[in-house]
């Protein structure tokens, strides 16, 4: 649907009056936009890919939802789903936290990788899941990214990485930090082999992820208003002792600063990716 109509608010949405919804609708059937507080039927919300039909806010998606929204039906083969961390530093309370999030998300760690087709284009997909430990990068995340890039290199497939991350997985200490090195090196090997890497930054992309594989792709796209940056807002404000503008570290800010190529709405993402992939595979008339 055209977004300008949404903003002009001409169309009647199935948005429900807040009070009535609270009273009449059983929980789980409605979804409330955290931005504008409007309430929608769960089904409508999902059909709209977690983008608020009223204010246009792009809310977080799980990795599986993301993949389902892009991939030709039945074409996705997942890789390394069984990889699980072993709490390498024996960090207190880490295992309980992992189990909690494993139960919550049905994933073993904060990332899903595999290959599939987007409008018939073969691709490798690497998708971080912000609902698992805020998609922080520990050994499993780094390992799965490195393996996916190596396989893509060997089978000469383009790679699309969806980033969403709070940064490092603190409980894995230096193993976590060194995943920055490992993933950046894997990107480099893929790049040297001529591979095409598309990075789509989603809310939030921060810390060590921004300072490694997320920032060295061939094409950098971002979803509207996604938080993208290296240091956290609070720590910057503490350091410089001033308040930062509201739009600081948004996708729009990064576009203006020259750090990303384009902002793309979720509703237009599949088409954009398809076109970019096509432009890398289709030969001209002369060939």
């Amino acid at each position: 649907m055209p977004l300008k109509r949404i903003f002009k608010n001409k169309r009647k949405y199935a948005a429900l009056p807040t009070e009535k919804a609270k009273q009449d609708i059983p929980e789980g059937l409605v979804e409330k936009c955290q931005q504008c507080s409007k309430i929608f039927y769960e089904k409508e919300w999902k059909n709209n890919l977690h983008v608020c039909p009223s204010c246009g806010t792009h809310h977080k998606m799980t990795a599986r939802e993301r993949i389902a929204s892009l991939i030709d039906e039945g074409s996705f083969q997942e890789w390394d789903a069984e990889l699980k961390t072993t709490n390498p530093l024996n960090f207190p309370e880490y295992e309980q936290k992992l189990i909690q999030d494993q139960e919550k998300t049905g994933l073993n760690d904060a990332i899903v990788t595999g290959r599939g087709k987007i409008n018939k284009n073969d691709v490798v997909l690497v998708v971080m899941d912000p609902f698992f430990r805020m998609a922080s990068m520990g050994g499993v995340v780094g390992e799965k990214i490195a393996r996916a890039l190596e396989r893509a290199k060997d089978s000469q497939l383009p790679v699309i990485i969806f980033t969403a991350s709070g940064g490092a997985r603190m409980q894995e200490g230096m193993i976590s930090l060194m995943q920055m090195a490992k993933t950046a090196m894997a990107v480099d090997r893929f790049d040297q082999a001529g591979g095409c890497l598309i990075v789509v930054m989603t809310n939030p992309t921060t810390g060590g992820v921004t300072a490694s594989f997320a920032s060295i792709g061939d094409y950098h796209f971002a979803e509207p208003n996604a938080l993208i940056g290296f240091a956290g807002r609070r720590i910057i404000e503490q350091t410089i002792r001033e308040k930062l503008p509201d739009d600081f570290q948004t996708a729009e800010f990064q576009l203006e600063q020259g750090q990303i190529d384009r902002i793309v709405k979720r509703s237009e993402l599949k088409q954009l990716l398809t076109t970019v992939l096509d432009l890398h595979t289709v030969g001209g008339d002369h060939s």
């Binding site: 090195a181 300072a211 910057i236 410089i240």
Partner: peptide, 23 residues
């Protein structure tokens, strides 16, 4: 962690170094 550092791409600068140092 500062305003100018973010504006000029702190994340990109570090990431670029990692990629270049790799090779």
């Amino acid at each position: 962690p500062g305003k100018g550092a973010e504006e000029r791409g702190q994340g990109e600068a570090i990431a670029r170094n990692l990629k270049e140092m790799a090779q």
